[in-house]
Design a protein around this nucleic acid. Structure first.
Lengths: 292, 292
DNA sequence: GTTCCGCATGAATCGATAG
DNA sequence: ACTATCGATTCATGCGGAA
């Protein structure tokens, strides 16, 4: 089974038109922020951000499957003592386009960039806006469950009795179950707040996010062999993570430098991943060291 | 030196008109959320939330000092699989009214409401929108500095002395019981993400936000003898905290039950606080036991 | 007197049922 | 078809009684 990573050089506004309707399971992207990254993207003026983005989001709406999800990582800049409003205006405009604004996740950046200003503190969070085409989208909640909170540590004894009974009743054999192991993995569903550290190695790319960010949403909204799209690929974090997790991926990038870099680095992986019985969890560290 | 707590019964839209121009240093409030608390406030329909709030925010703009700050705690509901947009629409409308949207703090609710749904996770954060009249507002950043280090890392809790003791007692670790441990720590500025648990069971009162929330903003945006206003007083958390911190306060409440309760509980405090050399930190526990 | 454990209780949200 | 009400689901926390 071949997992493909389709790396495309070009303006996503044009390149998206070549993709088929209802063909994408997850769009995860972090577009250039308004008026930032001037040296790389030219910098979109805040006042024109919405009008610049709407033709793109229209194409994204077309290529997304009805069961798919679009996750947009974005945060408004502060200028002249105020936060810009283009993100809110974008949400309102995209809803008129037909998108459902399902949820807003918060990425809490645990080690955010240091700094001090007279009128504001460090900005330690970003928005992860979830948009959908329909209310019946795929969501694999069990894939992102987390260990129960610290409160359980002092109360494990009570849990053990219940869990022991349930476990025995379930399989009946009573053979080969490590109860204490099971106890330490009491799992609960997460919330809409994600606590992740920012990526330190940046490769001249000012808007990098950690692997864990796309990984979490890929786990949550896709299964193996699904297709993930990043129309603003940049250094390719989303694509590399998707590949590692055995999802097909499409990355669009306007800058030749990034395109070449990702293209050359993703190729050897294809080989590697074609081997049978390779589980992505086991290879994570190796591949991270290999490609990053 | 007398610190006053002016408790007013009535609709804040009417009562605010009686307050003088440019007389308030900090407005901290949590208005009734759309379509919620029906039994108490009647519930404002999401589609009419903005038009309901704008006359109030217009008065708030009038009574706030040019150096003052308005902090609005709010979160949009989810309905029919989507988040409502009235909060974003409110921000846009308030800017047209003349407000500056300076910043959006995130309150991460460590213990959010439980529940499970097929299309979303538990909602663990609320917005704390900072509005200002001018870009030259008072901000006492040093007052909310936090110790750097693994214990406080990721929590951003600015603890009063009693809080430190209480937390240490709770953990039972003995860590930090020696105040010098704290004094020796390097202090850093916090970020715009606040990690606080909601207060669960206070028997009779259940405040919608913990004391630490208004406390943090009162420290940051006011000094002693300044005036704090809460136009939706509710059970009076903001007013009690302001009183304890030696700030004058004005609370407006439409429901007689809440009004009477706060009125009767705040009175004995006036006596107590009139005594000289009373530092609010030392009295927190005593007063909490006394009045709550 | 500690520590431990049971239990109630929230700014919630969805789907089903009823008017 | 559209709105109002209700039950089910879920988990971090504090309180009080028990060990």
């Amino acid at each position: 089974m071949k997992i493909s990573a389709n790396i495309i050089l070009g303006d996503c506004k044009d390149e998206l038109e070549k993709l088929g309707d209802n063909s994408i399971d997850l769009i995860f992207t972090s577009p250039p922020y308004a008026d930032s990254r001037k040296n790389t993207y030219g910098g979109i003026h805040p006042d024109r951000y919405v009008e610049w983005f709407l033709p793109i989001s229209e194409q994204l709406l077309r290529v997304l499957k009805p069961t798919g999800t679009f996750v947009l990582n974005i945060k408004e800049k502060a200028a002249n003592g105020e936060r810009h409003t283009y993100v809110m205006e974008l949400i309102l405009a995209m809803r008129k386009q037909g998108w459902l604004w399902t949820e807003e996740f918060i990425w809490h950046k645990k080690n955010c960039y240091p700094g001090k200003w007279p009128n504001r503190f460090r900005d330690a969070w970003e928005r992860l806006l979830q948009f959908n085409k329909t209310t019946k989208f795929n969501m694999y909640q069990e894939e992102v469950m987390i260990p129960v909170g610290d409160w359980a540590k002092g109360r494990l004894r009570n849990l053990s009795e219940t869990d022991k009974k349930r476990d025995n009743a379930k399989n009946g054999s009573g053979f080969g179950k490590n109860v204490s192991n099971w106890l330490n993995r009491q799992m609960v569903y997460p919330t809409n707040v994600l606590h992740l550290a920012t990526e330190c190695n940046n490769k001249n790319h000012s808007a990098v996010f950690p692997d864990e960010l796309p990984e979490w949403f890929i786990k949550l909204f896709t299964k193996e062999k699904d297709t993930v799209l990043d129309p603003f690929m940049g250094s390719g974090t989303t694509i590399f993570v998707a590949k590692r997790m055995l999802r097909n991926s499409i990355g669009i990038e306007i800058l030749p430098e990034y395109y070449k870099m990702v293209k050359s680095e993703i190729e050897p992986l294809a080989y590697y991943l074609c081997e049978p019985k390779v589980k992505y969890e086991k290879n994570k560290t190796a591949r991270c060291n290999q490609i990053r």
